[in-house]
Amino acid sequence: MKSEFLRFVIKKFLIMVLTVFLISLAVFYIITLPPGDFLTNYVGQLQAAGESVSQETIDKLKAVYGLDQPFIVQYWKWVTNIVFHGDFGYSFLWKMPVTSVIQAYIVPTIVLSLVTMLFTYLISIPIGIYSAVHQYSLGDYLFTSIGFIGMAVPNFLLGIILMFIAFKLTGDTMLGFFSAKYQTAPWSLEKFIDLLKHCIIPILVIGLMNTCGLMRTMRSQMLDELSKNYTLAARAKGLKMRVIRYKYCVRAAINPIAASIGWSLVNIFTGTTIVAIVLNLPSMGRVMYDALLDQDMYLAGSWLFLMAIMTVIGTFLSDILLAWLDPRARKEYIQG
Protein backbone atom coordinates (compact mmCIF):
# COMPACT_ATOMS: atom_id res chain seq x y z
CA MET A 1 0.00 0.00 0.00
CA LYS A 2 2.72 2.44 1.04
CA SER A 3 4.81 1.92 -2.06
CA GLU A 4 1.74 2.00 -4.29
CA PHE A 5 0.80 5.32 -2.81
CA LEU A 6 4.29 6.61 -3.39
CA ARG A 7 4.17 5.51 -6.99
CA PHE A 8 0.85 7.29 -7.37
CA VAL A 9 2.33 10.49 -5.93
CA ILE A 10 5.30 10.26 -8.26
CA LYS A 11 3.07 9.67 -11.26
CA LYS A 12 0.95 12.69 -10.38
CA PHE A 13 4.11 14.70 -9.86
CA LEU A 14 5.41 13.82 -13.31
CA ILE A 15 2.09 14.81 -14.85
CA MET A 16 2.36 18.07 -12.97
CA VAL A 17 5.81 18.76 -14.38
CA LEU A 18 4.54 18.06 -17.87
CA THR A 19 1.60 20.39 -17.33
CA VAL A 20 3.86 23.16 -16.07
CA PHE A 21 6.01 22.75 -19.15
CA LEU A 22 3.00 23.09 -21.45
CA ILE A 23 1.78 26.06 -19.45
CA SER A 24 5.14 27.77 -19.80
CA LEU A 25 4.89 27.38 -23.57
CA ALA A 26 1.44 28.92 -23.56
CA VAL A 27 2.54 31.76 -21.31
CA PHE A 28 5.52 32.57 -23.44
CA TYR A 29 3.32 32.55 -26.50
CA ILE A 30 1.06 35.11 -24.80
CA ILE A 31 4.08 37.21 -23.87
CA THR A 32 5.09 37.42 -27.50
CA LEU A 33 1.52 38.00 -28.69
CA PRO A 34 1.28 41.81 -28.79
CA PRO A 35 2.05 43.25 -32.18
CA GLY A 36 5.63 44.48 -32.35
CA ASP A 37 7.95 43.14 -29.70
CA PHE A 38 8.26 44.89 -26.39
CA LEU A 39 11.69 46.18 -27.26
CA THR A 40 10.30 48.28 -30.09
CA ASN A 41 7.71 49.64 -27.71
CA TYR A 42 10.36 50.32 -25.13
CA VAL A 43 12.63 52.08 -27.55
CA GLY A 44 9.64 54.04 -28.77
CA GLN A 45 8.86 55.06 -25.22
CA LEU A 46 12.43 56.10 -24.56
CA GLN A 47 12.58 58.12 -27.72
CA ALA A 48 9.26 59.74 -26.98
CA ALA A 49 10.67 60.72 -23.62
CA GLY A 50 13.47 62.46 -25.45
CA GLU A 51 16.19 59.95 -24.80
CA SER A 52 18.36 58.86 -27.64
CA VAL A 53 18.88 55.16 -27.99
CA SER A 54 21.82 54.07 -30.02
CA GLN A 55 21.51 51.21 -32.46
CA GLU A 56 24.24 49.55 -30.46
CA THR A 57 22.10 49.44 -27.32
CA ILE A 58 19.16 48.09 -29.26
CA ASP A 59 21.28 45.34 -30.75
CA LYS A 60 22.66 44.49 -27.34
CA LEU A 61 19.19 44.23 -25.84
CA LYS A 62 18.05 42.18 -28.80
CA ALA A 63 20.90 39.77 -28.24
CA VAL A 64 20.12 39.51 -24.51
CA TYR A 65 16.51 38.54 -25.17
CA GLY A 66 17.26 36.65 -28.36
CA LEU A 67 14.63 38.69 -30.17
CA ASP A 68 16.09 38.10 -33.57
CA GLN A 69 15.87 34.37 -33.10
CA PRO A 70 12.98 31.94 -33.70
CA PHE A 71 10.25 31.44 -31.08
CA ILE A 72 11.69 28.25 -29.69
CA VAL A 73 15.13 29.78 -29.06
CA GLN A 74 13.56 32.79 -27.37
CA TYR A 75 11.45 30.46 -25.28
CA TRP A 76 14.50 28.45 -24.31
CA LYS A 77 16.31 31.58 -23.15
CA TRP A 78 13.29 32.71 -21.17
CA VAL A 79 12.80 29.35 -19.48
CA THR A 80 16.46 28.71 -18.67
CA ASN A 81 16.70 32.20 -17.19
CA ILE A 82 13.79 31.39 -14.91
CA VAL A 83 14.98 27.94 -13.95
CA PHE A 84 18.67 28.68 -13.46
CA HIS A 85 18.73 32.31 -12.45
CA GLY A 86 15.24 32.94 -11.11
CA ASP A 87 15.06 35.70 -13.71
CA PHE A 88 11.59 36.33 -15.11
CA GLY A 89 12.69 39.11 -17.43
CA TYR A 90 12.62 42.87 -17.21
CA SER A 91 9.65 45.11 -16.57
CA PHE A 92 9.81 48.13 -18.81
CA LEU A 93 7.01 49.78 -16.93
CA TRP A 94 8.77 49.59 -13.60
CA LYS A 95 12.27 49.71 -15.00
CA MET A 96 13.39 46.89 -12.77
CA PRO A 97 13.48 43.08 -12.95
CA VAL A 98 10.07 41.39 -12.84
CA THR A 99 11.21 39.39 -9.81
CA SER A 100 11.70 42.55 -7.78
CA VAL A 101 8.25 43.87 -8.67
CA ILE A 102 6.63 40.59 -7.74
CA GLN A 103 8.57 40.40 -4.49
CA ALA A 104 7.33 43.82 -3.52
CA TYR A 105 3.68 42.98 -4.03
CA ILE A 106 3.33 39.28 -3.38
CA VAL A 107 3.04 39.44 0.39
CA PRO A 108 -0.17 41.49 0.65
CA THR A 109 -1.67 39.38 -2.12
CA ILE A 110 -0.93 36.11 -0.38
CA VAL A 111 -2.05 37.34 3.02
CA LEU A 112 -5.28 38.67 1.59
CA SER A 113 -5.90 35.41 -0.28
CA LEU A 114 -5.24 33.19 2.70
CA VAL A 115 -7.44 35.24 5.01
CA THR A 116 -10.21 35.15 2.43
CA MET A 117 -9.80 31.43 1.97
CA LEU A 118 -10.04 30.82 5.69
CA PHE A 119 -13.14 32.98 5.84
CA THR A 120 -14.63 31.12 2.88
CA TYR A 121 -14.22 27.66 4.37
CA LEU A 122 -15.22 28.63 7.89
CA ILE A 123 -18.48 30.03 6.64
CA SER A 124 -19.45 27.81 3.75
CA ILE A 125 -19.00 24.35 5.25
CA PRO A 126 -21.14 24.80 8.37
CA ILE A 127 -23.83 26.57 6.34
CA GLY A 128 -23.77 23.82 3.72
CA ILE A 129 -24.20 21.16 6.40
CA TYR A 130 -26.97 23.11 8.08
CA SER A 131 -28.81 23.63 4.79
CA ALA A 132 -28.64 19.95 3.91
CA VAL A 133 -29.69 18.69 7.31
CA HIS A 134 -32.57 21.17 7.45
CA GLN A 135 -33.50 20.86 3.80
CA TYR A 136 -36.47 23.05 2.76
CA SER A 137 -36.45 24.89 6.07
CA LEU A 138 -36.60 28.68 6.16
CA GLY A 139 -32.88 28.86 6.89
CA ASP A 140 -32.14 26.58 3.97
CA TYR A 141 -34.18 28.75 1.59
CA LEU A 142 -32.48 31.87 2.91
CA PHE A 143 -28.95 30.52 2.51
CA THR A 144 -29.73 28.91 -0.82
CA SER A 145 -31.02 32.17 -2.25
CA ILE A 146 -28.10 34.16 -0.88
CA GLY A 147 -25.81 31.56 -2.33
CA PHE A 148 -27.52 31.75 -5.66
CA ILE A 149 -27.35 35.50 -5.91
CA GLY A 150 -23.78 35.53 -4.64
CA MET A 151 -22.79 33.15 -7.42
CA ALA A 152 -24.39 35.33 -10.05
CA VAL A 153 -23.14 38.82 -9.17
CA PRO A 154 -20.00 39.67 -11.07
CA ASN A 155 -17.15 40.46 -8.70
CA PHE A 156 -16.40 43.93 -9.95
CA LEU A 157 -20.03 45.02 -9.74
CA LEU A 158 -20.23 43.85 -6.16
CA GLY A 159 -17.05 45.76 -5.39
CA ILE A 160 -18.43 48.98 -6.82
CA ILE A 161 -21.78 48.55 -5.12
CA LEU A 162 -20.11 47.94 -1.76
CA MET A 163 -17.91 50.99 -2.30
CA PHE A 164 -20.99 53.02 -3.05
CA ILE A 165 -22.73 51.74 0.07
CA ALA A 166 -19.62 52.34 2.17
CA PHE A 167 -19.45 55.89 0.85
CA LYS A 168 -23.11 56.57 1.61
CA LEU A 169 -22.75 55.16 5.12
CA THR A 170 -19.35 56.42 6.20
CA GLY A 171 -18.37 59.05 3.66
CA ASP A 172 -15.29 56.97 2.82
CA THR A 173 -15.03 54.77 -0.25
CA MET A 174 -12.62 52.43 1.54
CA LEU A 175 -10.17 52.44 -1.33
CA GLY A 176 -6.74 50.93 -0.79
CA PHE A 177 -5.57 49.24 2.40
CA PHE A 178 -5.34 52.40 4.49
CA SER A 179 -7.07 55.73 4.89
CA ALA A 180 -5.00 58.70 3.80
CA LYS A 181 -3.99 59.70 7.30
CA TYR A 182 -2.62 56.27 8.18
CA GLN A 183 -0.93 55.72 4.83
CA THR A 184 2.50 56.76 6.04
CA ALA A 185 1.89 56.65 9.78
CA PRO A 186 3.87 54.16 11.87
CA TRP A 187 2.06 51.00 13.01
CA SER A 188 -0.41 51.50 15.80
CA LEU A 189 -3.66 49.99 16.99
CA GLU A 190 -5.67 52.62 15.10
CA LYS A 191 -3.78 51.89 11.93
CA PHE A 192 -4.43 48.18 12.34
CA ILE A 193 -8.16 48.77 12.87
CA ASP A 194 -8.14 51.00 9.81
CA LEU A 195 -6.54 48.15 7.87
CA LEU A 196 -9.18 45.70 9.08
CA LYS A 197 -11.95 48.08 8.03
CA HIS A 198 -10.44 48.36 4.60
CA CYS A 199 -10.20 44.59 4.33
CA ILE A 200 -13.93 44.00 4.80
CA ILE A 201 -14.95 44.89 1.26
CA PRO A 202 -12.12 42.99 -0.45
CA ILE A 203 -12.77 39.87 1.61
CA LEU A 204 -16.50 40.09 0.96
CA VAL A 205 -16.02 40.60 -2.74
CA ILE A 206 -13.33 37.97 -3.22
CA GLY A 207 -14.88 35.51 -0.83
CA LEU A 208 -18.56 35.79 -1.68
CA MET A 209 -18.53 33.96 -4.97
CA ASN A 210 -16.33 31.23 -3.62
CA THR A 211 -18.24 30.94 -0.37
CA CYS A 212 -21.50 30.61 -2.22
CA GLY A 213 -20.06 28.03 -4.57
CA LEU A 214 -18.64 25.94 -1.75
CA MET A 215 -21.85 26.29 0.21
CA ARG A 216 -23.85 24.92 -2.67
CA THR A 217 -21.39 22.10 -3.27
CA MET A 218 -21.34 21.19 0.40
CA ARG A 219 -25.13 21.23 0.56
CA SER A 220 -25.61 19.02 -2.47
CA GLN A 221 -22.80 16.65 -1.48
CA MET A 222 -24.26 16.36 1.98
CA LEU A 223 -27.76 15.72 0.62
CA ASP A 224 -26.27 13.08 -1.62
CA GLU A 225 -24.56 11.37 1.28
CA LEU A 226 -27.61 11.64 3.55
CA SER A 227 -29.68 9.74 1.00
CA LYS A 228 -27.16 6.93 0.56
CA ASN A 229 -27.89 3.40 1.61
CA TYR A 230 -25.22 3.23 4.25
CA THR A 231 -27.13 5.78 6.34
CA LEU A 232 -30.04 3.32 6.38
CA ALA A 233 -27.79 0.52 7.52
CA ALA A 234 -26.23 2.80 10.12
CA ARG A 235 -29.67 3.74 11.40
CA ALA A 236 -30.67 0.09 11.47
CA LYS A 237 -27.66 -0.53 13.70
CA GLY A 238 -29.08 1.95 16.17
CA LEU A 239 -26.55 4.70 15.53
CA LYS A 240 -27.48 8.25 16.49
CA MET A 241 -28.38 10.59 13.63
CA ARG A 242 -25.72 12.99 14.85
CA VAL A 243 -23.02 10.35 14.63
CA ILE A 244 -24.23 9.23 11.21
CA ARG A 245 -24.15 12.82 9.99
CA TYR A 246 -20.74 13.73 11.30
CA LYS A 247 -18.83 10.48 11.25
CA TYR A 248 -20.09 9.31 7.86
CA CYS A 249 -21.84 11.96 5.83
CA VAL A 250 -19.79 15.06 6.58
CA ARG A 251 -16.60 13.11 6.21
CA ALA A 252 -17.68 11.81 2.82
CA ALA A 253 -19.14 15.12 1.68
CA ILE A 254 -16.02 17.03 2.61
CA ASN A 255 -13.77 14.93 0.38
CA PRO A 256 -14.63 16.68 -2.87
CA ILE A 257 -14.51 20.02 -1.08
CA ALA A 258 -11.03 19.22 0.13
CA ALA A 259 -10.18 18.24 -3.39
CA SER A 260 -11.31 21.61 -4.63
CA ILE A 261 -8.84 23.57 -2.51
CA GLY A 262 -6.65 23.99 -5.55
CA TRP A 263 -9.49 25.49 -7.54
CA SER A 264 -10.58 27.66 -4.64
CA LEU A 265 -7.14 29.12 -4.50
CA VAL A 266 -7.36 30.04 -8.17
CA ASN A 267 -10.78 31.57 -7.77
CA ILE A 268 -9.51 33.62 -4.90
CA PHE A 269 -6.41 34.71 -6.77
CA THR A 270 -8.55 35.63 -9.75
CA GLY A 271 -10.82 37.46 -7.39
CA THR A 272 -7.95 39.44 -5.94
CA THR A 273 -7.02 40.57 -9.43
CA ILE A 274 -10.34 42.23 -10.15
CA VAL A 275 -10.84 43.52 -6.62
CA ALA A 276 -7.38 45.00 -6.56
CA ILE A 277 -8.18 46.90 -9.72
CA VAL A 278 -11.57 48.15 -8.59
CA LEU A 279 -10.57 48.98 -5.03
CA ASN A 280 -7.13 50.19 -5.96
CA LEU A 281 -5.33 47.78 -3.64
CA PRO A 282 -1.56 47.64 -3.84
CA SER A 283 -1.47 43.95 -4.71
CA MET A 284 -0.41 41.90 -7.70
CA GLY A 285 -3.76 42.25 -9.44
CA ARG A 286 -3.29 45.98 -9.78
CA VAL A 287 0.28 45.47 -10.95
CA MET A 288 -0.79 42.97 -13.57
CA TYR A 289 -3.55 45.24 -14.80
CA ASP A 290 -1.21 48.19 -15.22
CA ALA A 291 1.28 45.93 -16.93
CA LEU A 292 -1.38 44.71 -19.35
CA LEU A 293 -2.57 48.21 -20.16
CA ASP A 294 0.99 49.13 -21.03
CA GLN A 295 1.69 45.81 -22.72
CA ASP A 296 4.53 45.21 -20.30
CA MET A 297 4.21 41.56 -21.17
CA TYR A 298 7.08 40.06 -19.20
CA LEU A 299 5.57 41.29 -15.96
CA ALA A 300 2.00 40.33 -16.86
CA GLY A 301 3.06 36.98 -18.29
CA SER A 302 5.12 36.12 -15.24
CA TRP A 303 2.23 36.82 -12.95
CA LEU A 304 -0.04 34.69 -15.11
CA PHE A 305 2.61 31.96 -15.06
CA LEU A 306 2.88 32.10 -11.29
CA MET A 307 -0.88 31.87 -10.86
CA ALA A 308 -1.07 28.92 -13.22
CA ILE A 309 1.75 27.14 -11.41
CA MET A 310 0.02 27.71 -8.11
CA THR A 311 -3.12 26.18 -9.55
CA VAL A 312 -1.25 23.17 -10.77
CA ILE A 313 0.38 22.71 -7.39
CA GLY A 314 -2.99 23.22 -5.73
CA THR A 315 -4.52 20.56 -7.95
CA PHE A 316 -1.65 18.20 -7.27
CA LEU A 317 -2.08 18.62 -3.53
CA SER A 318 -5.84 18.19 -3.87
CA ASP A 319 -5.40 14.94 -5.76
CA ILE A 320 -3.05 13.57 -3.14
CA LEU A 321 -5.34 14.75 -0.37
CA LEU A 322 -8.38 13.14 -1.98
CA ALA A 323 -6.56 9.87 -2.46
CA TRP A 324 -5.39 9.98 1.10
CA LEU A 325 -8.85 10.78 2.48
CA ASP A 326 -10.88 8.31 0.45
CA PRO A 327 -9.62 4.73 0.45
CA ARG A 328 -11.82 3.80 -2.49
CA ALA A 329 -10.62 6.68 -4.63
CA ARG A 330 -7.12 5.79 -3.53
CA LYS A 331 -7.52 2.37 -5.05
CA GLU A 332 -9.09 3.70 -8.25
CA TYR A 333 -6.51 6.41 -8.69
CA ILE A 334 -3.58 4.24 -7.94
CA GLN A 335 -4.63 1.57 -10.35
CA GLY A 336 -6.14 3.84 -13.02
Binding site: T19, I23, F269, T273, L304, A308
Partner: peptide, 9 residues
Protein backbone atom coordinates in the same frame (compact mmCIF):
# COMPACT_ATOMS: atom_id res chain seq x y z
CA UNK B 1 -3.32 23.15 -19.16
CA UNK B 2 -6.19 25.44 -20.13
CA UNK B 3 -7.93 24.86 -16.82
CA UNK B 4 -4.78 25.68 -14.90
CA UNK B 5 -4.96 29.28 -15.97
CA UNK B 6 -7.11 31.50 -13.85
CA UNK B 7 -9.83 32.47 -16.25
CA UNK B 8 -10.21 36.20 -15.79
CA UNK B 9 -6.49 37.02 -15.79
Amino acid sequence: VVRSFPQVP
